[in-house]
Amino acid sequence: MSGRDLVTVRVPEPLREFTGGRGQLHYDASTVDAVLEQIRRTEPLLAGRLFEDDGSVRGFINVFVDGRDLRHLAAGRRQVRPGSVVAIVPSVAGG
């Protein structure tokens, strides 16, 4: 299965030290919740940075699914498809 057949998770620079330097992760999933679950399972270091103990995304990190904020996606709109991009956007302060 090629990257185009999978969902791509974009890992930004500040979090790549928790993925061994990888900027993209690829998963076979049909919902964003399944993607997040696979991150928890396969990337425990990254997951430790992304999620609160209750499983919610930390307040200084945002997850966008094909450009849409995960927090605003209703239960019925959390599907992803091959080629979807899940972007992790953390707060950075450099100026």
């Binding site: 620079e13 930390r58 307040g59 200084f60 945002n62 956007v89 950075v92 302060a93 450099g94 100026g95």
Partner: peptide
Amino acid sequence: YGAIFRFEGQASVFAAPGGPCYRCLFRDPP
């Protein structure tokens, strides 16, 4: 708004009438 880190940057306009603010995006500081 603009912010940078290594090779990546972010930009937006916040606190414009009707638009979101920085806290709408980043509720908590890291």
